[in-house]
Design a protein around this nucleic acid. Structure first.
Length: 195
DNA sequence: GTCCCGATCCCCT
DNA sequence: GGGGATCGGGACC
């Protein structure tokens, strides 16, 4: 992996249409510092959401919950769902436009023991779902609105590896705008939630 | 104020 | 493959 994880590695493409960003986030990293323990995870599956999209939390306009989605790119939008799960999104686009990319699956790279401890299991189910990865990386509402250039959770740029390619399909777990091809994942990657 | 349902996961079969 | 867990947001009264 050609990645030396310096702070300058923050992605410079977040201020683009959300489906473009969703694709380009594939291969980027979350670097989580938890009490001095470092975890690194590679993004392998994403979904794009924005205002014009009936499935998006920003579709009905600004609310206290979704305010972060309408802010500047590069911040974290976290929501709580089904009474017990958290999911996280990278805010994209210009301020005033409510768009974000849901991170649906990551591939553990470093600090795997720490993730396993938090999840209470090991193997494929560690991070192959949006709420699973939040539990593994200890992401909850306390990180809502967090600047992803800063500790303790940073977004670092990354690329697809030679031989890898991305695929685009319809999104998962939604009932509106089900026809849109706004789910992106790295083809064949074992950490993707569903192939 | 009340009601409904969700960008889900896990355990059981 | 199905259902239960569990709670906050948003719609409507």
């Amino acid at each position: 992996m050609s990645n030396n994880n310096s702070p300058e590695d923050f992605p410079n493409f977040l201020n683009n249409p959300v489906e473009t960003v969703a694709e380009r986030l594939l291969g980027c990293f979350f670097e989580r510092n938890l009490g001095g323990r470092r975890m690194l995870a590679r993004i392998v599956e994403t979904e794009a959401y924005d205002e014009g999209d009936a499935a998006s939390h920003s579709h009905r306009g600004r609310t206290a919950r979704t305010e972060v989605m309408f802010g500047e790119a590069g911040y974290l939008y976290v929501y709580f769902t089904y009474g017990m799960h958290y999911c996280c999104n990278v805010v994209t686009g210009e301020a005033g436009h409510g768009s974000a990319v849901l991170i649906r699956a990551v591939e553990p790279v470093e600090g795997i023991d720490s993730m396993e401890e938090r999840r209470g299991l090991h193997g494929r189910n560690l991070t192959n779902g949006p709420a699973k990865l939040c539990q593994a990386l200890d992401i909850d509402l306390r990180l809502g609105g967090h600047d992803l250039r800063e500790e303790p959770l940073r977004l670092l740029t990354g690329e697809l590896l030679p031989g890898e390619s991305s695929t685009c399909t319809t999104r998962i777990g939604i009932s509106k705008a089900t026809e849109l091809l706004r789910r992106h994942y790295i083809a064949g990657n074992p950490w993707v939630s569903r192939h």
